Simulated scan of single mutants.
Amino acid sequence: MKIKQFLIAFFIIFAISNSFSQDKKFKIHTVAFYNFENLFDTINDPNTYDEEYLPNKGWTSKNYKKKLDNLSRVLIELGTDENPANSPVVIGACEIENRGVLEDLVKQPRLINKGYKIVHFDSPDKRGIDVALLYQEKYFTPVSYTNIPLYIYKDGKNNGKKEEKEKEEETDDAVQVDESTQRIYTRDQLLVTGYLEGEEISFIVNHWPSRSGGEKKSSPNREAAGALNRKIIDSLYKINPKAKIITMGDLNDDPTNKSVKKGVGAVGTKEELKPLGIYNPMEKMHKQGIGTLGYRDSWNIFDQIMLSEPLVKGDYSSWTYWKANVFKKPYLIQNEGRWKGYPKRNSNGVPGFSDHLPVYIYLIKQVN
């Protein structure tokens, strides 16, 4: 009899709570990150290593236009499974040659009506690849933005020392070293603070140093990048302990690597998350074998979006994190050849989408 009464009470409570939940309405916004994989124009820039992407190497205007069309298809569809009314309001991006290619991208037929605007700075990377932020002007209003350089050195003394004048040696991405200072040139970290429909949120866009030369040997460079990222986060927390911060990018490391776990101090569960902390929803995905790029029959999730504690443990009266995902539509996957089963990359002069899959999160807010 007691069991029967308990079950009746349980179903009554469930029905009441369900009726209340059905009355609640939420607004959803998508925030995404995508490595565009060498979004280069066809114009020779004497100040960067862009020779691989020129018409005499097969990178024609036709190929460039196809690449833009491919990327626009992805961006307009990102996050629309749960948010069919709109593409991402904010998109972090990397592997961009210059502002011009972004201007061409946001003018693509699929995107032009979204009114995407651009925040971009030239980085010291000699290949000319930068990070950037795209945003829909009707939803997000930037109030400040800056590029923050990462100072790392070939001798391992990544102490952030800044030289007043530095000579760049023309070498590839892995060894862009100034012989006089031993500085390795890499991408800046982009910080943008603004208002998402009236609520202040800061975004940090990253593209950390590669694993060229080996994961272990190159790890200190990414650890330095993680430490810089944490320094930026702490500076925002110092101004406002309730700061809402989203840091995202191609980190060239997984969520469990030292650069992320120790450098940024990110945790993989909400239970571990403390005030002034950072939550990484991609850590759980990584442990489940989900990835954004494949190599030698294994997957890594180098592309990550992490969030400050107030975005994760807040209530739904303001913008709050809901869930994260990897965007893996069939058309993004190579179905034949050497890269079968992996993201459909640029190959033999033929434009693909990217050798990385994009990632995205949903922010939700109760509207009644």
Rank of each mutant, 00 (worst) to 15 (best):
Y331M: 06
T320K: 12
E199P: 08
G58H: 11
D297F: 08
Y139Q: 04
K287A: 09
N300E: 03
T146P: 01
P255W: 06
N348Q: 07
V367L: 02
K2G: 02
F20A: 13
L363G: 07
G294I: 09
A9M: 04
G341I: 14
Y295D: 00
D69Y: 15
Q189M: 05
K157I: 09
K216T: 14
T146W: 03
K329A: 13
N368A: 00
L332A: 10
K162V: 07
S219M: 11
G352E: 09
K107M: 14
S308Y: 12
E272A: 12
K2V: 12
Y342N: 09
N38T: 10
A132D: 01
P330H: 02
I118A: 03
N240A: 03
I8G: 08
F40W: 13
I290V: 09
E51Y: 12
K67F: 03
M282I: 01
F33P: 08
N147L: 13
K284C: 00
F40V: 13
E283L: 03
E95D: 05
D41F: 10
I112F: 14
F10Y: 08
Q108S: 09
Q334S: 09
A324Y: 05
A9R: 06
P343V: 05
S210L: 02
V367G: 01
T48V: 15
I91Y: 01
H356D: 14
